[in-house]
Design a protein around this nucleic acid. Structure first.
Lengths: 198, 198
DNA sequence: AAGTATATATACCGGTCGGTATACTCACGG
DNA sequence: CCGTGAGTATACCGACCGGTATATATACTT
């Protein structure tokens, strides 16, 4: 009963803290940003941070969750605009391209995984959940499009999705999302029209 | 002339430092590992570290370079064992699977990119170079296999390669390399036997 | 009017950060 | 025999780390 705290709405100061911490964590990394800096930038004292979030670790988890929610909401919104169920599968890559253009430091979940080396850190579960959600999204979209009998395809699309982000930022390959979408289109076509190959 | 230092062989202490720092940086992350810890674990004083490497940043770069060299040598060795030029393209994923089984923290280059938020940090160039080398490797293998006229394919294989690593570790999807190899096989077959699809 | 929640300001804690300074030992090569 | 390179030991530096303590002000509820 007491284990799961009630989701109370954030106080104004807490919202400011989360916004500032989100920007700083994403842009400069979790370890390099101290709570003193967050307090200063948010116009808040350290005590307020600890009163609202309890610890830096909890603040990091809140940051990752918030970021994950934004990403999911963005993706759902973009997919809703696409009528054709078949095209909607590939529209994930259009949305990714748009998202990528707005952020220059890659995937916050992947970056957090890299920084949080302790397997027990709760932030890792947030990152893992996002990837599970994404592969489930692909599976759902494929099912909606009537593409069945290709059990690996949703996982393949996840791999293309994650690889596109890494290739863009770490590899500096600007067209990686386009490249990934072309691969996705080919795999999707092969699964939708079986028998065209030996 | 004086800009590029001569590659002098590492002293025994320097080798120990690099080995220990490599393990610690990879396993726990660059920021969480201090030079005091490296000195202690390597049985060396801090002064020796700074005498040999000059700064922590330079030590990080040496770590990334060393790691990159190991990876390239491993890949080249594994590919040399495969006679068939066509199969050799997919053998990259077999080698990756073997490599992945030996390391539990994903790609050191991707992790370093996440930690080194300063775009000017020289470690970033090492990470980028590895991805450029990998895509060039794919392009060479495809050319050797006689697969031409698919200009995006090498980049697509890189995306699958990087995505497989992320999906494995961040996403916890154990079969991601297998999934990626299947996708690579399908894309390769389509490029090698054109005209089987509309 | 009292109590609670939210916030401020300021000072402090022990510990670690990357990096430097000083002094000493040892082995090797001219 | 003497200098040089490689190494150890130890102490120190200012800055920052995550986190806590204390005391005060304000605003909304009941």
């Amino acid at each position: 009963m007491t284990a799961t705290a009630v989701e109370r709405p954030l106080t104004p100061a807490a919202r400011r803290i989360l916004a500032v911490a989100g920007d700083l964590f994403y842009e400069r990394g979790i370890h390099t940003v101290g709570v003193d800096l967050i307090a200063r930038e948010a116009g808040v004292t350290k005590k307020t941070i600890y009163d609202r979030f309890g610890s830096k670790e909890a603040l990091v988890v809140a940051y990752l969750r918030h970021r994950d929610q934004r990403w999911r909401a963005f993706m759902i919104d973009r997919l809703r605009r696409v009528d054709d169920r078949y095209a909607r599968v590939l529209a994930v890559f259009d949305a990714l391209e748009e998202w990528e253009a707005a952020w220059d430091r890659g995937c916050a979940m992947v970056n957090a995984y890299a920084e949080l080396s302790d397997p027990a850190h709760p932030g890792r579960a947030v990152a893992r959940d996002q990837k599970a959600w994404t592969v489930e999204l692909f599976a759902q979209l494929l099912d909606d499009a009537g593409v069945r009998g290709a059990p690996m395809l949703a996982d393949q699309l996840l791999v293309l999705h994650e690889g596109a982000v890494v290739a863009t930022h770490v590899g500096g390959r600007d067209s990686a999302v386009t490249v990934a979408r072309a691969a996705a289109r080919a795999l999707l076509a092969a699964a939708a029209n079986p028998g065209t190959s030996a």
